[in-house]
């Protein structure tokens, strides 16, 4: 089962639980987003931290990695050969992400968000080599690099005044910790007489730097469904740190042994996520759902 399946199951079960809880508390349907109780709990009530301004939720979606090579690296060297990689377009570099959202309202328009998520990124490229003589052989290798990061973005968002559909823009920084990576190689050997295709999978841990950071920006729109907020957003990540260092590039024998080596590249990503958030709201407001309650 792929991560997207887990994500779908999780989203469906979470939302069904949410609807059931909404029914049990006989939630009023809000016609105006400004009338939402957690919006009413404005920071003006208290000068410090106010739990009534907190909302939590989940998010998940798909992402597409955009690779911009800065300088090429190759294991092979010759006086006339071309060993540059051919990168696939970004829409073929599909990945998935899912995680949690913690949002705090600094004011009615300004909110700060911490989005802890597990992000799977991928990108693809290919090399082709050939030899001529008594043996004529062409050797096409299509690499599929996969990385799983634990990411912690911190975003500051501006939420436009609206009715039930509320657009917003956001920007911030993110820290990412590489959890795992692997490399699939689909190899096609073509000789005069036959075509042979096979695949190899290599654990590519070591070729990427474990700690990464970058900037993130984007926007979205959310819908007030009772006390819950359901939205969709798109974020563009620009990795500021180097995906691979000079040392890490040669950090995995299995990868270099397959004559594969990472280029110096810019790693960007476009992520589209659906998210559902609920406020941490007290029960005595009779507006549930809630998680903590001061009266208890």
């Amino acid at each position: 089962m792929r991560p997207k399946h887990y994500l779908l199951i999780f989203l469906i079960s979470f939302y069904s639980e949410l609807l059931r809880s909404q029914d049990s508390y006989e939630l009023p349907v809000m016609e105006n987003i400004n009338a939402l109780s957690f919006q009413k709990a404005s920071p003006s009530k208290t000068s410090g931290f106010n739990i009534e301004n907190l909302a939590i939720g989940i998010k998940g979606g798909v992402n597409f990695s955009l690779i911009i090579p800065l300088s090429e690296n190759s294991i092979f060297s010759s006086t006339g050969g071309d060993y540059s990689k051919e990168y696939n377009p970004f829409y073929q570099n599909i990945g998935y992400q899912m995680g949690f959202v913690i949002r705090y309202s600094l004011s009615r328009e300004i909110k700060i968000k911490l989005q802890c998520s597990m992000n799977d990124y991928s990108f693809k490229y290919s090399n082709e080599y050939s030899w001529q003589g008594s043996t004529n052989l062409s050797y096409l290798t299509e690499y599929h690099q996969n990385m799983r990061f634990l990411e912690i973005p911190v975003l500051l968002g501006y939420y436009f005044k609206a009715e039930q559909w509320q657009p917003y823009v956001q920007a911030g920084l993110y820290y990412a910790r590489l959890m795992n990576s692997n490399s699939y190689a689909d190899i096609t050997e073509t000789t005069d007489n036959q075509v042979l295709t096979y695949s190899t999978t290599t654990n590519s841990n070591g070729i990427y730097q474990e700690n990464q950071f970058g900037v993130i920006g984007g926007g979205g729109i959310r819908y007030a469904a009772g006390k819950a907020m359901i939205g969709i957003e798109a974020n563009y990540r620009f990795l500021l740190s180097k995906l691979s260092s000079t040392t890490s590039r040669y950090g995995n024998n299995q990868v270099t042994g397959n004559y594969d080596i990472t280029d110096d590249l810019l790693f960007n990503n476009i992520a589209i996520s659906i998210h559902i958030t609920v406020p941490l709201q007290c029960a005595d407001s009779k507006d549930g759902p809630f998680i903590f309650c001061k009266s208890n």
Binding site: I75, F76, S77, S78, G81, Y83, Y129, S130, W131, Q132, G133, S134, T135, N136, L137, Y259
Partner: peptide, 8 residues
């Protein structure tokens, strides 16, 4: 580095 030669 591997020094390539296309002559098989």
């Amino acid at each position: 580095k591997v020094y390539s030669d296309e002559n098989s």
